[in-house]
Amino acid sequence: MQSLIEARGLSKDFGNLWAARDVSFQVEAGEIVGMLGPNGAGKTTTLRMLSGLLTPTEGEAFVDGHSMQHAQLEARKGLGFLTGDMDLYRRLKPIELLTYFGRLYGVSESTLKTRVDKLVEAFSIDEFSSRFCEKLSTGQKQRVSIARTLVHDPKVVILDEPTTGLDIMASEFILQFIRRMAKEESKAVIFSTHHLDEVERLCDKVLVIHAGRLVYAGTPGDLNAQTGKNTLADSFFQLVNA
């Protein structure tokens, strides 16, 4: 089976710092992969290279078989990307925003209407669809952001800390949605977070990045077995403190 995401020796040099060094992994359809690492470990840099926002100094990223460096437009069509650094257009309403991005992703007008309606229903956006995005609560904004990430029905979804700043109910809603989406629609999901419990509950595999290097790639169970610990949290601390 062809991997939907493939990182091949990704490295990024910012002049005085290698933020990522020789990071390689693959994610298959239907898999949810948690990316873990302390602040400054290189998670966001790696995700930005995967999405084409940053050009790798070395290595190459592939999305649905398309090189992000050599066939960027094709690769981006199959990718939905969301990081905590992204906000919504203040003076657009949620449905206008979804339609705007749908058009930018080349979704046909007839498909777009159906797609937007589906997302509006899935994320209960109807409750606040008449308000401008600047007037939405943090949880409502995050729901719209994730809907925006999915408006073109991408095969690959990368979510960088999607539950940060959300209350427990909003977080749970988003986690359940990610699980359903990956399993029912066979999407490949990379999910970066600082909440180890979320990874434990949600993810099939774990990638641990530390000091720019990928120090572990495998299932949470294998990681616990490898470190001899009972919880993912203990295994993670042992790995990054080693």
């Binding site: 999405s51 084409g52 926002l53 960027q72 437009l73 094709e74 981006r76 069509k77 990718l79 990307f81 990081t83 650094d85 992204m86 906000d87 919504l88 257009y89 203040r90 991005f101 930018l104 992703y105 080349g106 925006r148």
Partner: peptide, 14 residues
């Protein structure tokens, strides 16, 4: 400043 530019750059546009 409003962090909306990155979103545009992840879309398949030149």
């Amino acid at each position: 400043e409003r962090r909306t530019l990155q979103t545009l750059f992840t879309a398949p546009i030149k």
